[in-house]
Design a protein around this nucleic acid. Structure first.
Lengths: 329, 329
DNA sequence: TCCAGAAACTTGAACGATCCAATCCTGCCT
DNA sequence: AGGCAGGATTGGATCGTTCAAGTTTCTGGA
């Protein structure tokens, strides 16, 4: 039976006009302290909440951010998106925004979805996770001046649009240096086929760290699709061909496979994974940890900067990963 | 420069009134075929999309469904929520709804968030994943007649509210029968501490299947928190105390631990996990597979039934899991 | 031919917020 | 005491849609 509480109800209760209530909400500094207090008391007493639809109709802003959720592909890495989304939801919330999910099976449909979301819900911004060379999606959004951020560098042109990323090369370099410090010299790397920006970046970190230490990385790396079985297979191959004393992997999936391959090998081979997934934590795998919560927060920062602030393209953010030390290295 | 396309633009273009356009969208049957065609042509020609905010203001319906996203806890099982959310987004989309995310650290805050979401965004419904005994959240929602569905049975009263669940007992029973058919008799079970509805359900399936086959399950089960390390520990314990020939586990995490424990044991011990996570697929673990996409779809079905249709409380849905056969059993 | 009744379409009002422009105070100075 | 500047407050218009009520057009039977 409770009547709907609108801005008019609050105004009546606080003996002011609707506009004054609106000012308390949107421009508190122009309202006298005493009046503001009275209005705020009324708001709390009545449990008033601004109707977003009405506000949106007038202002054209929905305070909604869209993010894409994919079917889990390679399992272990699925949790990365999971944790990122969680962080995004949390930070967006604090900034007064909400996260809306969408899915799409291919780029064309995804772009069609953009149009739908923008037209129907007047979304304020998009967050894209991962981009590829010549991504048609970012192009479409940029052409229409739709605010968006990507988690993952644009591998073509670094200043194409705002982005947040984690320095994968620094992560593998740190992992490699730790192994070097521990006395290892034959440090192998298992990664993904050449061509993926992320994979090439992680391999580069390992290679550069070895070079810097005066170690020749030739022949010490292998490439494959992601997966536990693949990691195990390539590690066995490495063991018989170059007999490494340690292996750095581009993902925890590969590292998990590596762990299975080195069971019983003596002296023990060190293994370091990438992503610090909960599975890594469970089996005690040392792994490079991406600050996903921080990354999500910076995405929101960049967006609110564009949405609420100036029209300048904000500076990209490159975050440093850390090494989660466990007992495999 | 493109003018905003509203219902008035379409009306002018099709030489009808705003209301007729609205009728074409919301009640096509009362518009003459010829007129309807003319309006639809205009809609397509202009690329018109109904403004959700304006519609919502008049109807009080947002076509938004809220779902909660948690930080990944036990890693492997995180992917379950992931896949469920994906299915939910996909099916909701097809039904004309969108999924909004929220998080909360405890029940009180979650309930406060409900109020906020309902007041500010006028959400149409909530989807809760997992409920516990005497859940204050479902109570709060039910008291206020907010439409909601849970994925997971209400363990107190089965008719308390609409729900969708997967028959965990049937899953473990199926796994157990498969092992019995293969000639196993000493089939152990590793599950979670007594008291969790889900865990007790899964254990019951194993026990009943053994009883039905005339096998005494006494002493053949162990309880622990979820985790790979725990699974390994308890499996080693089982091996030395009761020497089972097969182990059914309440989760893939536990099963993964079991796999590590039985390495090298001869004759080989069979292992079956639960949830058919991508990790299980990767290591070749036979596992009980929940139809998560189907579950999400049925959640949406129940909700649209409540939202668009009658006021009857819809019948709960109990889905049957299947066994993903791989080489560990 | 005429009219009742249904079907098809049109018009004005309302949802709840913000923006705009006009008015009202209030304190301060002369 | 009067005038004035400036901030605080007010009423009206507006966003795009749907609801409710009104008007026109069509159909068929006497």
């Amino acid at each position: 039976m409770a009547e709907k509480v609108t801005i008019a109800t609050v105004a009546r209760h606080a003996r002011v006009s609707r506009q004054t209530v609106s000012n308390v909400l949107n421009a508190p500094h122009i309202v006298r302290q005493e009046t503001r207090q009275r209005v705020e008391d009324a708001i709390n007493a009545l449990g008033y909440r601004a109707n977003q639809a009405a506000r949106q109709m007038r202002t054209g802003r929905s305070r909604l951010i869209a993010a894409r959720i994919d079917p889990t592909r390679d399992g272990i890495n699925g949790s990365v998106l999971d944790r990122f989304l969680h962080g995004l939801t949390e930070t967006a919330d604090a900034a007064g925004y909400r996260v809306l999910l969408y899915t799409a099976t291919d780029d064309d449909r995804e772009i069609a979805t953009y149009g739908d979301l923008l037209g129907t819900y007047e979304l304020d911004a998009f967050v894209l996770v991962g981009t590829k060379h010549g991504d048609p999606r970012t192009e479409w959004l940029a052409d229409r001046d739709v605010p968006f951020v990507t988690f993952g560098r644009p591998w073509d042109a670094l200043d194409a649009h705002p982005w947040v990323d984690v320095d994968g090369a620094a992560g593998t370099a740190q992992a490699t240096r730790r192994l070097l410090d521990a006395g290892h010299r034959r440090i192998a790397f298992i990664g993904w086929p050449v061509g993926s920006g992320v994979g090439d970046d992680r391999r580069a970190g390992w290679r550069d760290a070895l070079h810097a230490a005066g170690v020749d990385p030739t022949g010490l790396h292998r490439e494959t699709e992601d997966g536990i079985a693949e990691g195990e297979r390539l590690t066995r191959d490495l063991l018989v061909t170059v007999a490494p004393s340690a292996v750095v992997c581009a993902s925890d999936s590969l590292a998990l496979g590596a762990l299975q391959a080195i069971r019983g090998v003596d002296p023990p081979v060190s293994v370091i994974g990438f992503d610090d997934t909960p599975v890594a934590a469970a089996v005690g795998l040392t792994s490079v940890s991406q600050p996903l919560g921080e990354a999500a927060a910076r995405c929101v920062d960049l967006l609110t900067g564009v949405l609420d602030g100036d029209h300048e393209t904000p500076t990209p953010v490159l975050l440093q990963p850390s090494l989660a030390l466990r007992h495999t290295a």
